[in-house]
Structure formats: structure tokens, C-alpha cells
């Protein structure tokens, strides 16, 4: 399997602070890589750099190659051609991620027409097909609805349709289910799983939730304070964490295994080595 996304020594700074201290990361074609870490660990910044959506005050150095194209230093026009076509992104906030003044079908159709120049009639057919493919009931009605008329889960499905309609090679998911109800979360994750398989797309899946990542991904990277502290196949990392931070993450995620009466573990305990590995 060839490498689709290859990041080498990526450093990102804002003002005097450096948010990312030189990370290396490879996503193979069709591979599912999870990035896990607390907020501020640099996982979202990595995603935004790959999309070319960092604020223009950010300083970026190193290398991001997508299918052989160098993305660091690419112009916004160059990035715009790739975004939504070769690489697309699904964000955390489905409630607010759609334009409230535009019908959902038109927003999905825009993505298709922007990159493929499809005529309106054919675009409409494809949009309906895509909306039903992401499990939206009555796709014709949904396509004529405004975002405020849909539920959070329906909106996230519409956004997944937007992200996948051009069959991208890489889909970046930034906590795509965090804002949803737990029951809806499970269904949307399953859908995402199927759709990624069907499209043969690779996925970079960002989350702070180990359970979610282990459901979707094959490999996982653990980020902490702007560096990757651990990486490997997901089963191996979960069963045998090498880094104390990873061990802490896993232990704090399994609170059902804490004996009653004992204090809940916090990650600092693991740094100090006070706590054994689980």
C-alpha cells in the first residue's frame, strides 16, 4: 500500500509560541489513522494544516505531501482546488456547519458543481442519490429543507454527503460525532465506516475518545503538547502502551475498572510514575 499522506518534521507556530514541534505521520491509501490527544495537543492544527485552513498568522515549516503534491507553501487557489475534491473534512459542529440561509440540497450540489462542473439536472440526481446513501430518509424533502429544519444527526449526515460526494482520497474527521447524542453517535460512526469503505478513502480521524477511535481506525497516534508520543496498530497501543501519557489516557477512559472507594486516576499520576500500568 502506497503512502497517500506523508507529513515530515511539520512545525507550526503562532506568534512566539510553537504549537507543533515537528511531527512525522504517514497515512497509506485507504488506511484509517486516528489521532488522539487532549485539546491543545496539536491534533486539530495538524488537520487544518493539511487542509490549508490555518489562519494566515500561522508559520508552517516542514513537509506535507498528499499523493506526491507538496502542500506546504501551496497558494490558497492551489489548496482550494484540492479541498472538497481530493481531501475533505468533516467537523465537530453539525448544528452550525451548514449555511442557515441556503437549502441543504443546494449546499451539497455546490460541492459537486464546484469541482466537476456538473450541469444542474445531473447534479441534483447525484445529490439525491448521495443523501439517500448517507441514510437520510426522504432525500428529496431533505434536499429542499433548510438546515434549521433538520436534526443534528441529519445535518451531520448531510455534511458527510458533502465531504464524500466527490470521492476524495482522504477524509479528515475532526471529532465528527462529539456534538451528537450517544445513540446518534453510534449510527453516524457506523455510517462513516461504511461510506469510507465504499469510497475506498483514507481517513485521518481526530478524537479525544479512545472508544470512538478504536471503532473506526486501524492505527493510532497519540499526541501530547505538539508532539507524537506514541503510535502503532490500535490493538497494540491499547494493550501495551509504551508512553506514560498513553497509559494515563487508557486508565482514565476505563473508569468502570476502578475499584470503588479509590480516587479516580488523573494523567499526572502516570507522569510521576505513582501509578502502575493497567
Amino acid at each position: 500500500m502506497g503512502a497517500l499522506l506523508r507529513i515530515r518534521d511539520l512545525r507550526i507556530g503562532f506568534g512566539r509560541a510553537e504549537a507543533l514541534h515537528g511531527i512525522d505521520l504517514t497515512v497509506g491509501e485507504g488506511a484509517r489513522v486516528g489521532i488522539i490527544g487532549e485539546s491543545g495537543s496539536g491534533k486539530s492544527v495538524t488537520a487544518l494544516a493539511t487542509m490549508g485552513l490555518l489562519p494566515d498568522t500561522a508559520r508552517v515549516s516542514g513537509s506535507i505531501e498528499l499523493g506526491g503534491r507538496q502542500l506546504v507553501g501551496l497558494s490558497d487557489t492551489g489548496f482550494a482546488r484540492l479541498r472538497g475534491d481530493v481531501v475533505s473534512m468533516i467537523f465537530q459542529e453539525p448544528m452550525t456547519a451548514l449555511d442557515p440561509t441556503m437549502r441543504v440540497g443546494r449546499q451539497v450540489a455546490e460541492v459537486l458543481r464546484l469541482h466537476q462542473g456538473a450541469p444542474a439536472g445531473r447534479a441534483r440526481e447525484r445529490v439525491i442519490e448521495m443523501l439517500s446513501q448517507v441514510g437520510l430518509p426522504d432525500p428529496e424533502r431533505i434536499s429542499m429543507s433548510f438546515p434549521h429544519q433538520l436534526s443534528g444527526g441529519q445535518r451531520q449526515r448531510a455534511l458527510i454527503a458533502m465531504a464524500l460526494i466527490n470521492q476524495p482520497e482522504l477524509v479528515i474527521c475532526d471529532e465528527p460525532t462529539t456534538a451528537l447524542d450517544v445513540t446518534v453517535q453510534a449510527r453516524v460512526l457506523r455510517l462513516l465506516d461504511e461510506q469510507l469503505d465504499a469510497a475506498g478513502a483514507a481517513c485521518l480521524f481526530i478524537s479525544h475518545d479512545l472508544a470512538v477511535v478504536s471503532q473506526v481506525c486501524d492505527e493510532v497516534l497519540v499526541m501530547y503538547r505538539g508532539t507524537i508520543v506514541e503510535s502503532g496498530p490500535i490493538a497494540q497501543v491499547l494493550e501495551n502502551p509504551q508512553h506514560p501519557y498513553t497509559a494515563g489516557l487508557i486508565a482514565t477512559a476505563r473508569i468502570d475498572q476502578i475499584e470503588p472507594g479509590r480516587p479516580l486516576p488523573v494523567i499526572e499520576n502516570f507522569w510521576d510514575g505513582k501509578e502502575g500500568r493497567p
Partner: peptide
Amino acid sequence: DYFRTARAVGW
């Protein structure tokens, strides 16, 4: 967020 979405789909 919808402006970010617009940028993310290639505008």
C-alpha cells in the same frame, strides 16, 4: 462554522 465549511469544500 458554515464559512469554514464553505472554505473546506473548496471555495
